[in-house]
Design a protein around this nucleic acid. Sequence first.
DNA 1: ACGTCGATATATCGAAGTGATATGATGAAA
DNA 2: TTTCATCATATCACTTCGATATATCGACGT
Lengths: 203, 203
Amino acid sequence: MLDVAILGLLMDRDHHGYEIRSQLRERLGDSESVSFGSIYPALARLERHGLVEAVAPAAPRSPAISTGSLAGERASLRTLRTSAGLGRRSRKVYRITERGRQEFHALLADPTTVDDGRTFSLRVALARYLTPALRVRLLERRRQDLLERLAEVRQGADNPDLDAYARSVMSHAAHSVELDLEWIDDLLSIERSDSETFAQEAK
Amino acid sequence: MLDVAILGLLMDRDHHGYEIRSQLRERLGDSESVSFGSIYPALARLERHGLVEAVAPAAPRSPAISTGSLAGERASLRTLRTSAGLGRRSRKVYRITERGRQEFHALLADPTTVDDGRTFSLRVALARYLTPALRVRLLERRRQDLLERLAEVRQGADNPDLDAYARSVMSHAAHSVELDLEWIDDLLSIERSDSETFAQEAK
DNA sequence: ACGTCGATATATCGAAGTGATATGATGAAA
DNA sequence: TTTCATCATATCACTTCGATATATCGACGT
């Protein structure tokens, strides 16, 4: 899951570890922040597998300071640290590789992994990288799972064995799943109207 | 988190590992099932710490078959397996200890741990074991967290840098948090009206 | 009577994630 | 000028996950 998230962010542009954490919340809507204890090992892992690569510390806003040699890079690193706005501790910036892009598409579309709320939201947030057909499949798969879950929690909400608090949890879970279902149905109807528009244009 | 959940279930009655998993979903509303790979180690850990203890395989529905000796227990185990309804592989039933009860209350009320959606729901499902004051504190703490989260996701929903899918995720997250807040406000108003009733009765 | 499927049940293993902690630089405020 | 908040990487012990192995029983079809 984290792999897809990181690769997805890197599809857009290069990032360093610390930034990935905030982007995960801001762009991919991750509610419970992923800890640094998973991000840095994940980045190391992805690099080991050749899916991402460390970029030589990029030139700061002010262009053309260093252009390549090892000594030059070291100098630019020092420059980077003290130069306007971009200081802080030296960043390790990562770029996605071609193999990384392939793996990203494969992971994102993989139908064998069952989505929980978190991975599903992640996938939707990255849905522009899926084909329309794969998007619909993703949404309909989740829809089925939620319908099953809805039946479960509704039963719990009516279970007289449970005390008022437990029943309240169940009943709120039911409302929450209902809201999720409405969302998915909205997304599905958008997908369908988009494909209609497409069909009409082709006509 | 899993510790509180297991202890909470054992407060009610004895359970074996397999059963705990289903009860977690049915009684405590846990959406993403906890795997056996965490339940059995957790049970072993709790036993090591003296918070739970393994019970001699309980007598089946039909009462009074064995009453104590080692030989008797072994016999009852065999009986258990082949007797009506309760067969299957031999179960390992756990009971909560006195120290376990103390620890349960401490963990449930612990204000230092920050609740995510899962642990919060768990705590509410077990809220009957909290005092009214601790219940209100739990609810208000979560309310604050959600208000902050709401501001974040609303910003994301309006962020023109994001594509329609990512914005949709953010906007749905906002609606979801709003629903959570309504739930919490309901629970809070119930707590308050309960304490009023209580005050009036005392009068 | 036979096989085999699905549910019940415990257990273990490697890989991944968490939460805490260490380290240190920088900019802003007190 | 010290000190505080934020930025940034890293590691550690412990917990959790997902897959897999093992085994028993009831039900179902053939």
